[in-house]
């Protein structure tokens, strides 16, 4: 854990005490409220709670965050989890507070840590900033298969995640119709990874979905400049140029796409 501050805290995470069985809605509500949305635990019950299971599935937390147009990225190891907290991001964690054979599945939100004291702080259940031993947390978290989530406002990126993980999170927003949020995420991705082909394609596709063809063309052009042999870049550029009536430029891009496709098949 080199390079990490020994102590860190995210001070402004709202706390919602969970009602019975509602740790999923409560934890996601805290993460979303921190990211700037006005939501409560009850708003999220229909979104993430499954009555027949009397609980919340991990896939629903992920889907729920996306439906509120937030970039949700999985964190799967303790150094990354602490690094996110140090970067000022609360981390939604999935724990098994019980035993493997007698599980007690639980969602909570990590709000701080102190490596010297070997403690971790969480908004958990009905306790605000519950202080727990780092080693105990590591065990309960490992029993939940080391699954955690950062839930960020559009345009912000996790401190630790790799290029593919954030691209997939942005593409999930795009697929769900949150084109503005997706475009903001792709822009942030391109600031960190300026050569990302999927980043430029994503930005173009998301801009096109918002109706901004000028921005879409600019993004696809950048994609062709940085990746001249990428068929998708030329094809998407040709498509939007055709839509906007720029016939000669479109024909040129289309020809490049087809020549590349023919050469590779």
């Amino acid at each position: 854990m080199a390079g990490l501050p020994t102590t860190a805290a995210v001070e402004d995470v709202p706390f919602f005490a969970q009602d019975d069985y509602y740790c999923g809605p409560a934890a996601l509500a805290m993460a979303l409220a921190w990211s700037g949305l006005e939501v409560t635990q009850n708003d999220l019950v229909p979104v993430v709670y499954t009555p027949g299971r009397r609980g919340t599935l991990q896939s629903d937390v992920l889907a729920g965050a996306r439906r509120y147009e937030r970039l949700a990225v999985v964190v799967d190891n303790l150094p990354d989890l602490l690094a996110e907290v140090a970067a000022g991001h609360p981390v939604l964690v999935f724990q098994n507070l019980g035993l493997r054979a007698l599980p007690q599945w639980h969602y909570a939100v990590v709000t701080g840590y102190d490596v010297d004291e070997r403690t971790l702080r969480l908004h958990s259940g009905r306790t605000e900033d519950l202080e727990t031993r780092l080693s105990t947390f590591a065990r309960t978290w490992a029993r939940g298969d080391n699954w955690a989530l950062v839930v960020l406002p559009p345009g912000e990126l996790p401190a630790t995640a790799g290029e593919r993980a954030v691209l997939e999170a942005a593409a999930a927003l795009e697929r769900g119709g949150a084109a503005e949020a997706a475009a903001a995420s792709y822009t942030a991705i391109l600031t960190r990874w300026p050569d990302s082909l999927p980043g430029w394609i994503g930005l173009g596709n998301a801009a096109y979905a918002t109706g901004d063809t000028t921005r879409a063309i600019a993004a696809f052009r950048r994609a062709t400049e940085r990746h001249p042999s990428a068929v998708a870049a030329w094809r998407n550029l040709a498509f939007v140029l055709e839509e906007t009536g720029d016939a000669s430029a479109a024909a040129e891009a289309r020809a490049r796409a087809e020549a590349l496709a023919a050469a590779s098949s």
Partner: peptide, 11 residues
Amino acid sequence: LDQLPAGEGFL
């Protein structure tokens, strides 16, 4: 869906 862990929290 009927077997995956579902978080319910402190009861």
